[in-house]
């Protein structure tokens, strides 16, 4: 371990660190869910993140996504890769500025043992879950559904069937023209990341 990593992880649980450093996690989408989840996973010490998103950073993203004013106009995956490197250079980031499709999903995320679904559009969520579960039925996917609005902490839950988890309240849809709000989308993103870390630590099946 390099000097900075040794300092970064001083006092950290060595068993957890080992499990997380050896892990490869995919994140499909780098908006409110994906950018928040990526930061939590890089800070925890995940060894490799694969992140895909075709969009560029815009000013209105800054209300809830982990980007900065000087990153406006950059591809989200490039901006996020830079931010993650500034936090933890030992997390290797593969960045794909691409739209994920049933055709390229395997070539982008094939090396990930867990996939975090962080898309905005419900149809894209459905496509990702169907394709991943058909290709890799034994590998976990942690999706989000029902993140809109403010408050309603008590409604947020985790549903599971086999290797599929869905986090959210299952009722609060983002309406056209109404954007998600910082705190609630970050709560769900961090629940996705928390569940991912728990699975990798062997503490949940």
């Amino acid at each position: 371990m390099d000097k900075f990593s040794a300092e970064l992880y001083a006092g950290y649980d060595p068993v957890l660190l080992e499990a997380w450093r050896n892990a490869t996690v995919g994140i499909a989408g780098a908006g409110g869910l994906g950018s928040n989840a990526a930061i939590a996973l890089a800070r925890a010490g995940i060894g490799k993140l694969i992140i895909a998103d075709y969009d560029n950073v815009s000013a209105s993203n800054l209300t809830r996504q982990q980007y900065f004013q000087n990153q406006i106009g950059l591809p989200k995956v490039a901006a996020l890769q830079d931010t993650l490197r500034r936090i933890n250079p030992s997390t290797y980031v593969s960045a794909y500025p691409s739209r994920v499709t049933p055709v390229n999903l395997d070539s982008i995320f094939g090396k990930a043992t867990i996939l975090i679904e962080a898309f905005d559009d419900a149809g894209e969520k459905e496509m990702l879950i169907e394709t991943w579960q058909s290709l890799f039925p034994q590998r976990y996917i942690i999706a989000a559904s029902g993140i809109a609005g403010v408050g309603k902490n008590e409604l947020i839950k985790i549903e599971q069937s086999g290797t599929l988890f869905i986090v959210g309240d299952g009722v609060s849809e983002v309406e056209p023209g109404i954007l998600p709000i910082s705190a609630r989308v970050a709560v769900v993103a961090n629940m996705q990341a928390n569940l991912c870390l728990e699975i990798l630590a062997g503490k949940r099946q």
Binding site: D121, A143, S145, I166, V174
Partner: peptide, 10 residues
Amino acid sequence: VSVFHLLSGG
């Protein structure tokens, strides 16, 4: 049988 309802937002 598990039926999951997907909602936009992310």
